[in-house]
Simulated scan of single mutants.
Amino acid sequence: MSGNKPSPGFTLVELMVTIAVLAILATLATPLFGDLIQKNRIDAIGGELTHLLQYARGEAITRGSAVTVSSSDGNWIGALSVATSSETLRRYGSEGINGSSGVSASGTSTSVTFAPSGTLSGKTTSLTVTLCPSSGTASGRTLHVYGSGQISSSSTACSS
């Protein structure tokens, strides 16, 4: 008897249900994916800014002279320069650190100077820089530079 054997493929109904479930999952995951990308961007920029500050501190100790990191407009991810009294060691143009579009940064000062001992000197006794997304609900990052020259980083809540 040559009966009807079941087909090894999918029925149209099974295929439509699978596509509907995938569409629902994609709709739920898309906003979370955007926040993840924004958080990774903030973490990368925070890491680069921390590295730049550590570089300036290390150069101050190595050279035995004060090194200043300054932000021309108070935006700590925009145009930055690292300089001694006689030469510029590094400079970031207006494009900023790590293609920093979509991220805003504000600091408690527009410059910070490391003494030859690696501690902060001058008018600024500490520096706090807060990095937040320009839009969205991702958390931000706060960098702290203490008077001792130590640099730390922590997560912070940002209001959009």
Rank of each mutant, 00 (worst) to 15 (best):
T119A: 15
G74Y: 12
A138W: 07
R141D: 08
S81H: 04
A79I: 10
G93A: 13
A83V: 02
S70N: 05
G74D: 09
S85D: 15
S111I: 02
A66F: 01
L80I: 14
L89K: 00
F114E: 01
I97K: 05
S81M: 03
V145P: 00
S126L: 05
E87Q: 03
T137V: 07
T108V: 09
S126F: 08
R141P: 06
N98M: 14
V82W: 02
D73Q: 11
S106M: 13
E87M: 01
L89V: 01
S104M: 14
G140I: 09
K123R: 09
S94F: 06
F114R: 00
V67C: 01
S134W: 08
S111K: 10
S86F: 03
V69E: 01
S85K: 06
A105D: 05
R91F: 15
G96P: 14
L80M: 10
V129D: 06
T130N: 13
T128V: 14
A138R: 07
S111C: 04
T124S: 04
A105S: 14
T68K: 06
G96C: 10
T68N: 04
L131K: 09
P133V: 07
S101F: 09
T110A: 06
V145E: 02
S135G: 11
T108I: 10
K123E: 06
S72I: 11
G122S: 03
T110P: 05
S121C: 02
L143A: 09
S126T: 13
C132A: 11
T110S: 15
L89Y: 01
W76I: 07
S104W: 04
N98H: 11
R90D: 06
G102H: 12
S81T: 15
G74S: 14
T124Y: 04
T124F: 02
S94G: 03
S101I: 04
V67Y: 00
G78V: 11
T113V: 02
S117G: 10
A138S: 15
T68F: 01
T110D: 14
T137M: 06
N75Y: 13
P133L: 07
A138M: 12
R141H: 05
A66G: 03
G136I: 10
G136V: 08
S94W: 07
T124I: 13
L131V: 11
R91K: 12
A66K: 00
A138L: 08
A79S: 14
G136N: 09
H144F: 13
S86V: 09
T68C: 00
L131F: 13
C132I: 08
T128A: 12
S139H: 13
G136E: 08
T137P: 06
T124V: 15
I77Q: 10
A115T: 06
L120F: 04
T124H: 03
S101T: 12
S100T: 11
I97P: 05
T68R: 07
S111V: 03
N75R: 15
A105C: 12
C132P: 08
E95F: 05
V145Y: 05
G74L: 10
N98V: 15
G118S: 04
T137N: 15
R141T: 13
S106Q: 14
W76F: 05
T119E: 10
G96R: 07
S139M: 12
N98E: 11
G140P: 08
V103C: 11
